[in-house]
Design a protein around this nucleic acid. Sequence first.
DNA 1: CATAACGAACATGCTCTATGTTTGAAATCT
DNA 2: AGATTTCAAACATAGAGCATGTTCGTTATG
Lengths: 245, 245
Amino acid sequence: MIAQAVRESGSVTVQELAELTGASEMTIRRDLDALAAQGVLERVRGGARTLLLRGEEPPFALRAREAVEAKRRIAAEVSSLIADGETVLLDSGTTCLEVARLLHQRPVTVMPLSLQAIHMLGDSPGPATLMVPGGRPRAAEGALTGPLTLASLSALRFDTGVVGCCGLSAAEGLTAYDLDDAAVKKASITSSRRIIVAADGSKLGRTAFAYVGPTTLLHTLVTDTTAPADEVAALEGAGTVVKIV
Amino acid sequence: MIAQAVRESGSVTVQELAELTGASEMTIRRDLDALAAQGVLERVRGGARTLLLRGEEPPFALRAREAVEAKRRIAAEVSSLIADGETVLLDSGTTCLEVARLLHQRPVTVMPLSLQAIHMLGDSPGPATLMVPGGRPRAAEGALTGPLTLASLSALRFDTGVVGCCGLSAAEGLTAYDLDDAAVKKASITSSRRIIVAADGSKLGRTAFAYVGPTTLLHTLVTDTTAPADEVAALEGAGTVVKIV
DNA sequence: CATAACGAACATGCTCTATGTTTGAAATCT
DNA sequence: AGATTTCAAACATAGAGCATGTTCGTTATG
């Protein structure tokens, strides 16, 4: 409730939240501190403020709470496109984290590009084989980037690359918010025989700062029903198979 | 208590453990299942059996419970030898995991060679900067090995390398149980300007299967008071600084 | 300087987990 | 095959731990 209130109003006071939730102000303060520590919002005296400014990328902890159902469905579809025994390269991002959860139960070899996914696949033994790429983790997201990551990618070839994105349009191609991220995605595409893009509908038709490549490099797009029809049509026209779940 | 009983007797029945601990047999069974899942012991009908056979390396989950106090002290000493701002290469193993815990609070750059240490340094943001090496994690230990690991190491140079070992003697040098591990340790030593060996006293004078290198490559050894005096003297004679904590 | 916000400390109620018991099923031994 | 032991599921219960709320002293802010 707090996260939603902050997202909608942009800024709320402790009193407002106490009234809204029926909890005491002390509890609200404690919850705000916890949410601030998770990077969901920013604490200010008397209340809290959203971290969402201008065209910036929303923080990871915030995105992880949005559209969870859609992400799950997309992840399930992506997983079903992957055959047993494949070697899979798995991008960073919340949707790909869901894919990691599913692939953990499958006899495949996975190299994830985020710390979170490494944890998921490495903590408990499962049928999946884990490969770790090198790199420098970027902030809360845990996305691995940098020369070590690029070197790890260039040394290997994968059957399938599952990539997320911040923006995807037929006209402007695949884009990311971060330059380093974009470089990793570029290398991922180069090192994978087949590319599956996992992106919920909100990413379609959007363009972010860093250019990764044209949509002609992408073999399959898995998205949800909120995807704009014109973009879907344009992508299919450009030769990408689109699966809507 | 259960882990200790199994370690000492090699094999115990559910009844014996129930008597020993005062708990019911059902509780013992549940605990045995949990310990077996953690890899501490092996479940057999009617009781449990140790996993420790012949000259094999004890399983990670078992080693993690032994000599925790000594490991902590050794880790504290190792940490004190490292200056703020250094780049540190951190080997796999339980002692080095303790070092990771301490370095997390320090403004240093750390590249750990085990999944466990990556988790420790990557989960919560701290003053330490994390670098992740590539590699394939080996079983429960989470030690990263293989060509990707070696490539990551050869691409970098560290101020200090903290290495663990399975055996260390002035006569036979530094040894490990696993060939791949030994290769990583060799590369670690090559890529680090200064080498600190963290090894409790039980490792001294022991020799394991895979040879890593002579003790002349090692600058400092941190061990505990259980280290045999003759080995310590021999190592100091060979030019290694020995710190006993 | 006054007021609001905060944080620490303590009390309380709740939830969740660990434990124990029972019972029927499964495995082992004779 | 029959007898006996071991096991696992189901349920009841006690305890620990956590979230919450209150109070009060401290700290920021206008």
